[in-house]
């Protein structure tokens, strides 16, 4: 096979993206668990780990630059490398959102719970699911799956609507809940944004596979 070193280099970079992806997934689920189980230690751990995510992203970016310089990629190779450069930004930003959720968990601390958290963990789960599948689609060059995953962002948006409506009702009924409810709305917002970022990743998958650069789905928020 010609260009073995190029293939090798490209595989390594994509593996690194998967590693970064799983770090981010872990950050989302752990931040949600910290919030739900009021585990301050775990929340602090997530905040500390975000540094690792940021570093990983920079490392991959370095790797991409090296790849461009040494291999001068064109066509699909070029699109893959451009996609990686974009995807890692999205991943890092999702990681930041998870860190934000962890911060909120710390802020809430031992305040009495407003209500049992059900929809927020569902949002987190859905987002995580979409994230994992979008990266699979990237590795498999599966544009169809990517389009489908993008469409699922609506579910996250619906959950977000539901959660905010519910929390606003709380606030209207009892102004003393405004502080706590607002924080939870932020969490919901973080997750909603994260899912939007996943649709960005899906767009990159379509770009790599078909060469088309377009917005698949415009978020409602």
């Amino acid at each position: 096979m010609p260009r073995e070193s190029l293939e090798q280099h490209l595989r390594e970079l994509q593996d690194e993206v998967l590693v970064l992806g799983s770090m981010v997934e872990k950050a989302i689920s752990r931040s949600m668990r910290a919030l739900k189980e009021r585990d301050l230690e775990l929340a602090k751990q997530v905040i500390a780990d975000d540094e690792k995510i940021n570093q990983k992203r920079l490392d991959i970016e370095e790797g991409c630059i090296e790849f461009i310089v040494t291999q001068q990629p064109v066509a699909t190779d070029l699109r893959i490398i451009v996609a990686i450069l974009n995807i890692i930004v999205d991943l890092e930003r999702i990681g930041d959102h998870a860190e934000g959720t962890a911060h909120i968990a710390v802020m809430i601390g031992d305040e009495p719970p407003l209500k049992p958290l059900i929809d927020l963990p569902r949002m987190a789960e859905k987002t995580n699911d979409m994230l994992r599948r979008s990266l699979d689609a990237f590795i498999n060059r599966d544009a169809k799956a990517a389009v489908k995953i993008s469409a699922e962002d609506d579910e996250v948006d619906d959950l977000y609507n539901q959660v905010s409506r519910e929390l606003i009702t709380f606030m209207l009924e009892d102004p003393r809940t405004i502080g706590r409810a607002t924080r939870l709305i932020w969490v919901a917002h973080n997750l909603e944004r994260s899912a939007d970022r996943v649709t960005n990743i899906c767009e990159r998958v379509v770009f790599v596979t078909t060469g088309k650069m377009e917005e698949i789905k415009t978020s409602r928020y």
């Binding site: 096979m1 010609p2 260009r3 190029l6 990629p73 064109v74 066509a75 699909t76 190779d77 070029l78 699109r79 078909t210 060469g211």
Partner: peptide, 19 residues
Amino acid sequence: VFSRPKDKRTENYITGRFG
């Protein structure tokens, strides 16, 4: 041509996977 060639043969050539 260099970012999204339409023909597989072009792609193979410009990415050096020719032959």
